[in-house]
Computed example of a mutant assay.
Amino acid sequence: MKLSFNYKDILNELARSDKNARSMTDEEHEALKDCLYNMSVDIEKRCRKNGIRLFLVGGSLLGAVRHGGFIPWDDDMDFGMKRSDYEKMKKIFDKEFSDMYELRCPNSPHPNANRFMQIFKKGTVLRTIGEDNPLQPSSVYIDVFPYDYVPEGRYLRKFRGLKANAEMFIASCVMDEKTMSEKKRAYLSKSKDGKLFIRIRRIIGTVFAFRSPEKWFDRVDKTIFYRKKSALVTSATGRKHYFGEIYPTKTFFPLTEISFREHSFFAPADHRKYLEGLYGSDYMKVPDVQHRESHFITEIKL
């Protein structure tokens, strides 16, 4: 069964009906990108100091390759960490980063409401339409995805991948059931597919609500953490989930470096292969305006 409604369109519709929501001005957009860049440089330098390698992935890596920095209409930063660095980051965060930042991450002392690590900058405010999770700070943040080894055996790999994807779906359904606003439910329910989307997620969210969404995200993190070294890695919590982001380990490691604005960040060893897998062979082509993401805000303070 395939649901045909566009979730982005639903959020845009929400924004258009909310008198407090608006698009960012050009000045605000540039200020946000500057804030994200300076934040990322500072965090990356602190990571290097502690022997942790934070590397560019997703749209941030694409921006570095295609534009030398941010994708012009983008306003976030995506990073990856090898699992060993990811676990070390949890342990040292309070000592090395908590003066300026807050952490949200599964299986850590810090409360989590997502399947991967997010680092928020204290003293900032960023409220966007569609992000109504009360467990997350309403602050400027970067995303950090763990990169885990993948079993080389086909059957074990399939089992772990299916288990991880199922747990992620359950966790998101339980989170929606606990936190989704009635306004968002109402707009999702305006279409036939949207109603089905809500109905399915409410059923799953209710059935599995015996465990909190935070605990479900902890389970996801434990499932994807494969301790045996192998020739394959995945970003199981990324945009294409477990099976969609499996690459040869040599695609990423050992890491290389790439310029993003004036700073040199770590990056996957073969960024071409990675970007082709994520965005297709024409990843260097700038998409048409209608295919570019837009975000609507209700409050911003940098």
Rank of each mutant, 00 (worst) to 15 (best):
L188S: 13
C35M: 08
R160E: 03
S139G: 08
P287L: 09
W216R: 08
D26W: 05
F55D: 01
D288P: 07
D94V: 04
K273H: 13
F252M: 00
F97C: 01
D193G: 15
F55L: 11
N112E: 11
I204C: 09
Y86E: 03
D221H: 14
I119A: 06
Y147P: 10
S281L: 05
I204F: 10
Y274K: 00
F169G: 15
D26T: 02
I142P: 15
V144I: 04
H67Q: 08
K195A: 07
K184S: 14
M24N: 05
E257P: 05
L62T: 11
M117E: 03
T25K: 08
K2W: 13
C47F: 03
A113C: 14
S294Y: 10
K90N: 11
E28N: 10
R227T: 11
R83M: 05
F70Q: 04
G153Y: 01
D288S: 09
D18Y: 14
R104P: 12
I119Y: 03
G161H: 02
H110S: 13
S294M: 13
K33Q: 12
T25D: 12
Y247T: 00
G59H: 08
A164H: 15
M81T: 05
G123R: 03
P109M: 02
A231H: 11
V57G: 04
D132R: 01
F93R: 00
G205L: 05
P248A: 01
C47Y: 01
I246C: 02
D78M: 08
K222G: 06
L275V: 12
T206M: 12
V144S: 01
K91W: 09
F145Q: 11
C35R: 10
E167Y: 14
K158S: 06
R239Q: 03
A113S: 14
E102T: 03
R202A: 08
S264H: 12
E257S: 13
K121E: 09
D270Y: 00
Y187N: 14
E245V: 00
E96V: 05
T251L: 02
G244C: 03
F145H: 10
G205V: 06
